[in-house]
Amino acid sequence: MKSESENGSPESLIMSDDLELAEVKAIRKKLSEMHNDIKKVMEFTSRLRLEAAIERSRQEYSNVLLNHLFEDIDSGLEQNMVKKCPEKQKCTSAFTALLQQNAGLITKNRVDDKSISDNQKKLEELRCEAPYNKCEKCFSEVSSLLIKQINLMRSMRIYTNNQEQKPNISALKTSVVMSEILEPVSNPQRLEILRAVAFEMKSFSAFSELTGLRGGNLLFHLQKLMESGLILQQHERGDYMITEKGFKILQGLNEIYSSLQNYPLQNSSKQRPEKNDLMERKEKTEMTI
């Protein structure tokens, strides 16, 4: 028979098991760390690929727009400048250079106010040197083309002038903002309804399925949105569609929401879970008692 020392004492067996368990845990931890590192690398690589794809798309889109603007310059000057003028060729060359320089700004991620102002000043300098009264017709066309380019940059959100960057907040009328904008969309069901009709018409039954509201409850919110001019009904018992006012409000909300994504809610971890109206009324009653 083998001695107890040869078979291993109970204490040594327990220590061996504990050692093996610790090694297994260490291996699992190391594998988990490796998995997380690989995941981060993959996410970073995917993000780089996405950003590169977006940048390529933006450049391609900008180049297409730039070609369109160049064609617009050529056709606009050819059609609307004074036909018979001894300075036409010289002026056409100067106008084309100025407008193409301004149009080239569209390929940038951001257009500063100085670049636009400099081009506008150059146009005014050329206007001051104009030798004939009939020159005003040509300058009117160039101004129109320049404004068209600037408005396109605004619509692409790559240019905002200093005046637009500092809006007159004091001009806001609190009562109008509350009644015409905030109050109509302050209810989650109404906001969901407005979002649903942003790009297509919806029926009463579709809204009912979307919001879970029935009959008079749903009709109340629809009437609220119609009275505020955010949606309208095609005809009696017809489908509902968004109005221009409703779409602009929805766009504004979307822009605000997007701009705040980099600003997490303060003390979000300490916020209470949402409670329905019945629970809140019950709590208030208990507190009063």
Rank of each mutant, 00 (worst) to 15 (best):
residue 243 T to L: 07
residue 32 S to M: 10
residue 135 C to D: 04
residue 159 Y to H: 08
residue 149 Q to A: 14
residue 71 E to P: 00
residue 119 N to D: 15
residue 65 L to H: 08
residue 58 R to C: 09
residue 135 C to M: 02
residue 235 H to M: 10
residue 34 M to P: 01
residue 86 P to I: 15
residue 218 L to W: 06
residue 39 K to T: 01
residue 131 P to Y: 11
residue 52 A to S: 10
residue 79 Q to V: 07
residue 1 M to I: 04
residue 288 T to D: 02
residue 17 D to G: 06
residue 77 L to F: 09
residue 202 K to N: 03
residue 165 Q to S: 09
residue 59 Q to H: 12
residue 142 V to T: 12
residue 265 L to D: 04
residue 85 C to I: 00
residue 225 L to M: 08
residue 253 L to G: 11
residue 269 S to D: 00
residue 166 K to G: 00
residue 205 S to F: 04
residue 178 M to N: 04
residue 189 Q to Y: 12
residue 280 E to K: 15
residue 175 S to D: 05
residue 136 E to Q: 13
residue 226 M to Q: 14
residue 224 K to Y: 05
residue 40 K to S: 05
residue 58 R to T: 09
residue 269 S to L: 12
residue 252 G to R: 07
residue 181 I to N: 02
residue 98 L to C: 02
residue 168 N to Q: 11
residue 272 R to E: 03
residue 116 I to H: 12
residue 56 R to M: 10
residue 110 R to G: 04
residue 238 G to N: 06
residue 12 S to W: 01
residue 262 N to Q: 11
residue 58 R to H: 11
residue 280 E to Y: 03
residue 76 G to D: 07
residue 259 S to H: 08
residue 195 R to T: 00
residue 108 K to Y: 12
residue 142 V to W: 10
residue 30 K to M: 13
residue 72 D to G: 00
residue 197 V to K: 13
residue 210 L to A: 08
residue 218 L to I: 03
residue 280 E to W: 06
residue 250 L to A: 03
residue 240 Y to V: 00
residue 235 H to E: 13
residue 238 G to Q: 11
residue 204 F to P: 01
residue 214 R to N: 13
residue 270 K to L: 14
residue 99 L to Q: 03
residue 132 Y to M: 07
residue 130 A to N: 04
residue 135 C to T: 00
residue 65 L to K: 15
residue 190 R to T: 01
residue 89 Q to T: 00
residue 124 E to K: 14
residue 2 K to E: 14
residue 234 Q to A: 04
residue 185 V to C: 11
residue 11 E to I: 09
residue 231 I to Q: 10
residue 81 M to S: 05
residue 156 M to N: 10
residue 1 M to F: 06
residue 20 E to R: 09
residue 252 G to P: 05
residue 41 V to M: 15
residue 210 L to P: 07
residue 277 D to C: 02
residue 200 E to Y: 04
residue 115 S to H: 06
residue 81 M to I: 01
residue 278 L to Y: 11
residue 24 V to S: 02
residue 136 E to M: 03
residue 124 E to M: 06
residue 255 E to D: 10
residue 37 D to A: 12
residue 174 T to F: 15
residue 211 T to L: 04
residue 167 P to V: 02
residue 181 I to W: 07
residue 286 E to W: 13
residue 238 G to P: 05
residue 220 F to Q: 11
residue 246 G to K: 05
residue 150 I to N: 14
residue 45 T to P: 02
residue 149 Q to K: 12
residue 221 H to V: 08
residue 73 I to P: 05
residue 92 T to I: 12
residue 206 A to Y: 04
residue 263 Y to K: 10
residue 169 I to M: 14
residue 205 S to W: 03
residue 116 I to W: 10
residue 137 K to Q: 05
residue 164 E to H: 06
residue 171 A to M: 03
residue 214 R to C: 12
residue 179 S to L: 07
residue 83 K to D: 00
residue 141 E to Q: 12
residue 163 Q to C: 02
residue 52 A to H: 10
residue 261 Q to C: 02
residue 22 A to M: 03
residue 158 I to A: 07
residue 105 L to W: 13
residue 63 N to L: 15
residue 61 Y to W: 04
residue 257 Y to H: 10
residue 139 F to Q: 03
residue 92 T to L: 11
residue 20 E to Y: 11
residue 103 A to C: 07
residue 16 S to P: 01
residue 67 N to K: 15
residue 221 H to Q: 14
residue 1 M to S: 11
residue 1 M to E: 09
residue 213 L to S: 10
residue 75 S to A: 09
residue 152 L to P: 02
residue 193 I to G: 03
residue 169 I to C: 02
residue 203 S to F: 09
residue 29 K to C: 01
residue 78 E to V: 00
residue 55 E to H: 14
residue 178 M to P: 01
